[in-house]
């Protein structure tokens, strides 16, 4: 028996919105500590990892660990039948569920849906706990804007960290550009830029993954970029009181 109730159903809709362009079919894992999801994009360049802690739910019960294979596209079709202010409850009765039930509750209506599940034998990547040598925390809409603007100039974006801060740069056929974001310790947390740079990094990435993933900026006003030289970068959106949504992205390297 599994039941998880989102106080803010809109949050769950934003999470699915943020990952729907990156991953197609995912295994949703539920156990006593909460719900998690880990899936790679088709090219195996990016990995989406979601972690939602049971304490963040209005109601949460999971007697036995469950794996529920679902199509993100079909999940979206069901979620489109809910309002952004609805409370959303996920529920299954059986131990080997073939469907996942959804209840959408608002003040003037209650809806029930069932999503058919699928069995997905997906390879799970072991992502080691890594101490990153550069960790940058910045406003998520700022990061989204920089990726979108520089992405118009070149499909690869360079990220260079130093004690002074973080620099994004592009060198394309039409020309080149760079954006240096200055550290600031403004008292408004959503506008703060912090850099912990033990070792500077200089890495390149396909910016289209950033642009796909940055829909998650609706989840949090801040984004955390964790980097080490010659390692995949981690973009993390903290989901207030619930957990986090992460994107691991492999770099592009000079051949």
């Amino acid at each position: 028996m599994f039941e998880a109730k989102f106080e803010d159903g809109g949050l769950f809709k934003k999470i699915v919105e943020a990952i729907k362009e990156l991953v197609k079919n995912v295994n949703l894992e539920a156990n006593g500590t909460g719900i998690s999801l880990q899936a790679m994009d088709t090219s195996h360049v990016a990995l989406v990892a979601l972690q939602l802690n049971e304490k963040g739910f209005k109601k949460y019960r999971c007697e036995k660990s469950l794996t529920m294979g679902l199509s993100i596209e079909n999940l979206q079709k069901i979620l489109k039948c809910s309002g952004n202010d609805d409370q959303i409850t996920l529920r299954t009765q059986d131990e080997e569920p073939t469907t996942l039930s959804f209840t959408f509750e608002s003040k003037n209506r209650i809806s029930e849906f069932q999503l058919n599940l699928m069995s997905l034998d997906q390879e799970q990547l072991g992502v080691p706990d890594t101490e990153y040598s550069s960790v940058v925390r910045m406003p998520s809409n700022e990061f989204t804007k920089i990726c979108r603007e520089l992405g118009n100039i070149n499909e690869a974006i360079g990220i260079e960290t130093s004690k002074e801060g973080i620099k994004f740069y592009v060198k394309g056929d039409i020309g080149e550009g760079q954006v240096s974001v200055k550290i600031n310790d403004t008292e408004k947390p959503e506008e703060r830029v912090e850099c912990e740079v033990d070792e500077p990094v200089n890495l390149s990435f396909a910016v289209r993954y950033f642009n796909l993933f940055n829909k998650a900026s609706a989840l949090s006003s801040q984004v955390i970029l964790s980097m080490s030289q010659d390692q995949p970068l981690v973009i993390e959106y903290i989901i207030e009181e619930m957990g986090s949504l992460k994107l691991y992205l492999a770099p592009k390297i000079n051949d």
Partner: peptide, 14 residues
């Protein structure tokens, strides 16, 4: 020229 690496190069399968 930049080439794209895949995650399997860094992370092993469980």
């Amino acid at each position: 020229k930049l080439i794209q690496v895949i995650l399997g190069y860094y992370y092993s399968n469980n």
